[in-house]
Amino acid sequence: MNAPDAAEPVIAADNLSVRFPVHTGLRERLRTGRRQLHAVDGVSLAVRASETVALIGESGSGKSTFGKALLHLETAHAGAIRFHGDDVTAATGDRLRELRRRRQLVFQNPYAAINRRRLIRDVIAEPLRYHQLGRADDRRARVHDLAGLVGLSPEHLDRYPHELSGGQLQRVVIARALALEPEFLVADEPTASLDVSVGAQIVNLFADMRDRFGLALLYISHDLPTVAHLADRIAVMYLGRIVESAPAAELVENPRHPYTQVLLASVPRRDPGHRRTAPARGEVPDAADRPSGCHFRTRCPLAMPVCAEQVPAAQVHGEHMVACHAAT
């Protein structure tokens, strides 16, 4: 393993693209050829140790797909994934298993992410078994430690998944991901299927684990206030591209992309006199049939003719990146 280096990203995506074939009728295929859905389109993003990067966007923006592609759970169509600087995009076999051990995922829906036929104890021990780490009694002790770490009591271990609540199950999923002592963790909307109060506890648990283990955390969400509180940097994704990214405080106080402004404006405020900016018009376009140029132009209050013709280039000011023709 490389020497610890704060500046060196643990993981970095370089122009990563993921495409899915779109199944259409034969007639359409003959007329327009095979279509592809660009779920992730040239996304670059890096996460350092002990750092939390939040990826936000509406559903269908490709943020989950990007997270999975970083973990080799979706196939990257173009671009590169670097882990501690090494290009691991094409890793397979034992090399990939070794990489899997060091990068983990926490799922959106803990009910679906757990094999319902196993005891909680066996669920948490699963990764240890797959990687043949430790003997039976080592594993048992390890499972107890992990359960304590995420706030589960030992009696939960001898239950079946359906006997636990959603929040408890999400703790199980987190314990299972931490069992391998990963360096990089993707949290894919981990609170989306939980009650608000339970979700807050889980968010705090993530912050706790990140600080304790120096985790590089990619936190995928559509909940801006939570993310602003948890993350160091925020990247905003729209239809497969990152439209703006900046340090959390900077992004919230000084959003430059109209889409980010709209997202921020949609957050309820406590001030009744506050006038809300006009919300984005219309619906998110079909990801398989995105508008030309800037994908946001169909809903953008600042749209200009140039937006339909050219993909806006990334403008970088210090740590603030924005891709918009209207932003200067």
Binding site: L71, L73, A113, E126, P127, Y130, R176, L180
Partner: peptide, 15 residues
């Protein structure tokens, strides 16, 4: 998801 999870956790094909 639990199948994706197993893959992510390092399950071999037979697992």
């Amino acid at each position: 998801d639990y199948m994706t999870a197993a893959r992510c956790l390092g399950a071999r094909r037979r697992d």
